[in-house]
């Protein structure tokens, strides 16, 4: 049930210097995952995140993007492959060690995954459960420094003064901000972000992506971000990995992402026929309205 309060200062110290201090890397090597006896969802996907690197993961629905993030957290057990966090293979960890590893991997969810009936503050503080004992958390006796940090994070994500609101009163963008604060109070070494903008309007999507990437830069966090929106991925992620049917079919700088590669990732229908639409290049950032983007933006 949670870590001993005594080792809290040590943890805190290490994390306090994470901007300039230890650099954390995540390396996923030939990961195989299948659900039950079904078709494999991931067949040998490999992605390595250098420290502080922001990587966008794109691919069609069912390509295995969410499964990949879930497998890194071992919410789904991989069949084979390695997940190395700072060189330690997460697939080999026992239950208690896994809890600590999960604490170091901050996760932000597509449907924000907040507890709707609890307040904003309570939701943010659930991010500290990995270091808070059961009874302390059940009685909502969170450590004072955690509460102070939660207030600071709410200020940072733009939710000042909303700590007492119940989460089901918030807008979609605000909920996602709570989700970000919850992930950050974990003091993660790496962020795993699953479709952060899936249920948001375009303007809010841009604001949320800006916030996430800014925070990664501020805190020197590496991040793996699932995105179904190619223009958004191209705009915010310097490096893009394309997943198709459980395999990495593209891995390179966002600038290298062209129609040919989009066809490889999404199939031939993904990009409008060159002759079809007044020659406007499909998938160009922010241009909007081409066939290619409509399909990709789905």
């Amino acid at each position: 049930m949670g870590s001993d309060p005594q080792d809290r200062p040590g943890v805190r110290h290490e994390l306090g210097v994470s901007v300039s201090g230890p650099e954390h890397s995540l390396s996923i090597q030939s990961l195989h995952v299948r659900y039950g006896r079904g078709e494999p969802v991931l067949s040998g996907a490999s992605i390595a995140l250098a420290p502080k690197e922001i990587v966008g993961l794109i691919g069609a629905s069912g390509a295995g993007k969410s499964t990949l993030l879930r497998a890194v957290q071992r919410l789904v057990e991989p069949e084979s492959g390695e997940i190395l966090l700072d060189g330690v293979d997460l697939t080999k960890l026992a239950r208690t060690e896994l809890r600590d590893a999960r604490r170091r991997l901050g996760m932000i969810f597509q449907e924000h995954a907040l507890i709707e009936r609890l307040s904003v503050m309570e939701n943010v503080l659930t991010g500290t459960l990995g270091r808070t004992g059961f009874w302390q958390s059940a009685r909502r006796r969170f450590a004072p420094e955690d509460v102070t940090e939660a207030f600071g994070l709410l200020d940072r994500v733009g939710l000042t003064g909303l700590e007492d609101s119940r989460c089901d009163e918030l807008s979609g963008g605000q909920k996602q901000r709570v989700g970000i604060a919850r992930a950050l109070i974990q003091h993660p070494d790496v962020l795993l972000v699953d479709e952060p903008t899936a249920s948001l309007d375009p303007a809010t999507s841009v604001r949320i992506m800006t916030l996430i990437t800014e925070i990664c830069l501020e805190r020197g966090l590496a991040a793996l971000i699932n995105l179904h929106d190619v223009p958004l991925a191209r705009r915010f992620c310097p490096r893009i990995v394309g997943l198709k049917e459980g395999e990495v079919v593209f891995d390179g700088p966002a600038s290298a992402l062209d129609d040919e590669i989009l066809r490889r990732v999404y199939g031939d229908d993904a990009v409008g026929a060159p002759a079809g639409h007044q020659g406007s290049p499909a998938g160009t950032e922010g241009s909007g309205g081409t066939d290619g983007e409509n399909i990709l933006g789905r």
Binding site: G2, Q73, L75, R99, R102, L105, F109, G127, L129, G130
Partner: peptide, 12 residues
């Protein structure tokens, strides 16, 4: 699931 990804125990 979200709680488990924070490193919380099963009961938490």
């Amino acid at each position: 699931t979200a709680m488990e990804t924070t490193g919380a125990g099963r009961a938490q």
